[in-house]
């Protein structure tokens, strides 16, 4: 399974692997927002946690259809399914690879983007922590969506339609935690809820992803 993870990471790093695309997309979103709402610092500071969370979520969404579709097209998925690896493990590794190549860079870069959005000083640590806790859930839920739509040609739009409603709880608790942090309020409750969602999703959703993948392969 480690071999699968290493292969996916290596593929992402090689030409055309799409590593960094999410980050660039995140930067563009953060750049465009002030053009849309005006450059007033107070307003930007107030909406910063929400915009940063939304940007991270959309950046994640952007690369979801690559998680399984490429392996489906070239037949690797058939071969992986007949290999000794359990499908549950395969989808977990796929989600982990997606998180390392998309989610983790967003978490690391988020303080820089927060500067652009004039986030108040108290908000940095909660923002980074909320993204660190929340982005794994985004990757795992996204992998479920990718597994559902893997057999559909041009399933990208459908994938978004299926995955975005599933992102609602994660977004609410993540953005709430970042917002409370920026206002200097107590972040414990949303943090625990966010961590709970991530843990639950990581523990349970791979079984659903593997089940739908098995259906799609037959």
């Amino acid at each position: 399974m480690i071999a699968l993870l290493m292969r996916d990471l290596r593929l992402a790093m090689r030409a055309g692997g799409g590593f960094g695309l999410g980050l660039a997309f995140f930067l563009i979103v953060v750049t465009l927002v002030p053009f849309g709402v005006g450059p007033e610092t107070g307003l930007l500071a107030r909406i910063a946690p929400g915009i940063l969370w939304l940007g991270a979520l959309l950046a994640c969404l952007l690369s979801l259809d690559r998680i399984l579709a490429l392996d489906w097209e070239d037949g690797s998925l058939d071969l992986l399914a007949t290999s000794p690896l359990p499908l549950e493990g395969i989808v977990t590794m796929k989600a982990l690879a997606h998180w390392i190549t998309t989610g983790l860079p967003l978490v690391i870069a988020s303080p820089l983007f927060a500067v652009l959005m004039s986030l108040p000083g108290a908000g940095y640590a909660p923002l980074v922590l909320s993204l660190l806790l929340g982005t794994p859930a985004l990757s795992v839920i996204g992998t479920f969506g990718a597994a559902l739509t893997v057999g559909i040609k041009r399933g990208g739009l459908l994938l978004s339609l299926l995955v975005l409603p599933l992102y609602v709880p994660t977004l609410i608790f993540g953005a709430e935690m970042a917002r409370r942090g920026a206002e200097g309020a107590d972040t414990t409750t949303p943090m625990l809820m966010l961590a709970g969602i991530s843990a639950g999703v990581i523990a349970l959703l791979p079984f659903a992803s593997a089940a739908v993948l098995r259906v799609n392969l037959r």
């Binding site: 292969r7 593929l11 090689r14 097209e73 070239d74 037949g75 690797s76 058939d78 071969l79």
Partner: peptide, 15 residues
């Protein structure tokens, strides 16, 4: 006990 090979080889072009 089986290994399967079909029309698609499951190769990664950049590896």
């Amino acid at each position: 006990t089986m290994t399967y090979a079909a029309h698609a080889d499951g190769l990664k072009a950049t590896l």
